[in-house]
Simulated scan of single mutants.
Amino acid sequence: MEILAFGVQADEKPLLEKAFRAEGPHEVRCLDVFLNEDTAPIATGYETVSTSVNCELGNHVLQTLTAGGTQMIAQRSTGFNNIDLKVAERLDLTVARVSYYSPHSVAEFAWTLGMAVNRNIVRASIRTRDFDFRLDGLMGRDMHGRTAGILGTGKIGEAFTRIAHGFGMNLLGWDVAENPACMELGMKYVPKQQLLAESDLVSLHVPLIPETRHLLDAAALRTMKDDAILVNSSRGGLVDTRALVAELREGRFTGVGLDVYEAEAGLFFLDKSLEVVDDDTLARLVTFPNVVVTSHQAYYTVDAVGQIIDTTVRNVLDYTAGRRSENVLVPAPAIT
């Protein structure tokens, strides 16, 4: 069987092809285009398609896939908010994701963003390229002794917490369930409003579900310290970006590091440098000198991508063998 993979990055392609070749019976055709309403007809005749987080699998796309003979979707990410699972279940599509990959990749990158805005690394680098070696405007702060607020203390949040503990920071956490490993590091679980009000650095590590959309809305952002640092390496929809821009226009926040953006589909992972980007919110966001935006690359290490690919191959093999693993989303697992 040949699998059609959408949204494959150049670095990812040889790894994906090698992994499927190693398993023998299956091959993969890699496309750099993302799956959406325009590209869905390409999948006609492919029983299995593999998708990335910025593919769009709404009702129309899923209907098109089913009409073309697709029966299985192997998502190459942990997040699956881009897939309408109810429609997939109605169409009898099997949908699987990657339940786990290296949490250190995202946690380390989140700290990279936090320290980049704290120590003005991007501004300093641009200056020195022009042989401007002044220190004006580059003063940062020690993280030691300050307070880190972690919204979401699962595997990635725990890895982020361990790094914060290494810096010697006070630790505040918020989640639906307390993580004993984080508590052993000295984390105190508090209500979200208290965490936002007391933290010098806030990092988001929760999934995007209806209950967490705009977790940081205008009211929540106003609760944060004026000189706080905000980092989001999870999902763009967790932050109300327009409200964030409004706060930044008021001169608030020492820095904001974003690896995700709520309207990133159709932008991130693509070269738009020769086009006019008509997203006014994003255009305004990237103009602030204390904001660093990267294009959803926190997971992008050879270790994490390797795990994602290995799990994707295993999901396809399980499907063809009639096995069901913890990675299968449709039929949707019960939420406990």
Results as ranks from 00 to 15, higher is better:
residue 100 Y to E: 08
residue 85 L to F: 03
residue 144 H to K: 13
residue 28 V to H: 06
residue 190 V to M: 03
residue 287 T to A: 11
residue 48 T to K: 05
residue 277 V to H: 09
residue 234 S to I: 00
residue 196 L to N: 07
residue 300 Y to C: 09
residue 116 A to N: 06
residue 298 A to L: 03
residue 185 L to I: 03
residue 277 V to F: 00
residue 145 G to E: 04
residue 117 V to D: 04
residue 296 H to M: 08
residue 113 L to K: 06
residue 200 D to F: 02
residue 35 L to F: 02
residue 225 K to G: 13
residue 171 L to Y: 07
residue 262 E to V: 06
residue 142 D to K: 05
residue 149 G to H: 00
residue 331 P to Q: 03
residue 206 V to I: 01
residue 191 P to E: 02
residue 87 V to I: 14
residue 166 G to W: 04
residue 280 D to W: 03
residue 285 L to P: 06
residue 18 K to S: 15
residue 57 L to H: 11
residue 12 E to P: 04
residue 235 R to H: 05
residue 263 A to S: 13
residue 150 I to T: 03
residue 86 K to S: 09
residue 279 D to V: 00
residue 222 R to W: 10
residue 263 A to N: 15
residue 189 Y to S: 09
residue 67 A to N: 08
residue 280 D to R: 02
residue 144 H to C: 10
residue 227 D to R: 08
residue 75 Q to P: 10
residue 274 L to C: 14
residue 136 D to G: 08
residue 187 M to L: 14
residue 4 L to M: 10
residue 1 M to L: 12
residue 211 E to L: 11
residue 145 G to C: 12
residue 32 D to H: 06
residue 182 C to D: 09
residue 270 L to Q: 02
residue 40 A to D: 03
residue 135 L to M: 10
residue 123 R to C: 11
residue 70 T to Q: 02
residue 79 G to L: 13
residue 193 Q to Y: 01
residue 302 V to L: 07
residue 204 L to G: 06
residue 292 V to K: 01
residue 8 V to H: 01
residue 101 Y to L: 02
residue 275 E to A: 05
residue 299 Y to K: 01
residue 325 S to Q: 01
residue 210 P to T: 05
residue 315 N to C: 08
residue 181 A to Q: 07
residue 128 T to F: 08
residue 276 V to K: 03
residue 2 E to W: 07
residue 226 D to I: 05
residue 59 N to E: 13
residue 225 K to W: 13
residue 187 M to G: 12
residue 107 A to H: 02
residue 323 R to L: 15
residue 70 T to Y: 07
residue 142 D to W: 08
residue 192 K to H: 14
residue 145 G to H: 04
residue 265 A to T: 13
residue 302 V to Q: 07
residue 121 I to Y: 11
residue 154 G to M: 01
residue 142 D to N: 11
residue 298 A to S: 12
residue 79 G to E: 15
residue 319 Y to L: 09
residue 96 A to E: 12
residue 162 R to D: 10
residue 209 I to F: 07
residue 138 L to Y: 00
residue 243 A to K: 00
residue 105 S to I: 05
residue 168 G to V: 04
